[in-house]
């Protein structure tokens, strides 16, 4: 079963807010000068910010903010966030891989930015809604 696609807009302001809230002040997430110096196309989103947005998609699909029992991803491609009002967009979809007899639902998740996969092996296990 395919779950409804969810889309998340990401701007530079979001990265600044996430840096403050998470305590991850790595310069690649706010300084174009630094990001390009280390070979990136520009400022990129925190991988953990992408994972957090995908986590929102998972809890929305699960229908409960406390339903996630296992959640893992591999970061495969940076999400470049331009310094403008539009920023960029992460598109998240998932298929239900398994519903267990013990009340768990396993999801295989896809997250893309401009059509490119930014995560691989993205999987979550949630408690099945009663």
């Amino acid at each position: 079963m395919e779950l409804p696609t969810q889309t998340f807009r990401v701007t530079r302001a979001d990265l600044v807010r996430y840096a403050g809230a998470s305590g991850d002040f790595n310069q690649i997430h706010w300084s174009d000068r630094f990001a390009t110096k280390v070979g990136l196309p520009g400022v990129i989103a925190h991988g953990m910010f992408t994972m957090a947005l995908v986590g929102r998609a998972v809890t929305t699909w699960a229908g409960a903010p406390d339903a996630v029992v296992d959640y893992g991803v591999r970061f495969t491609r940076p999400v470049v966030v331009p310094d403008d009002d539009e920023g960029t967009e992460i598109v998240v979809s998932a298929v239900v891989r398994e519903v267990t007899e013990t009340g768990l639902t396993r999801l295989d998740i896809t997250a893309t930015c401009h059509g490119d996969k930014v995560l691989s092996q993205a999987r979550a296990t949630v408690r099945t809604a009663a």
Binding site: F8, D14, R17, Y18, G20, A21, S22, M48, F49, M51, A52, L53, G55, R56, V58, T59, A64, P65, D66, V68, Y71
Partner: peptide
């Protein structure tokens, strides 16, 4: 929760969290 746009009341309102059986506001998964 605000920084990642997680608006579910259980992340913000202790009453909503208690209704789900938690002692106080619930942290998002990450």
């Amino acid at each position: 929760a605000t920084a990642i746009g997680a608006a579910d009341p259980a992340h913000h309102d202790p009453v909503a969290a208690r209704a789900l059986g938690h002692p106080d506001v619930v942290a998002p998964p990450t």
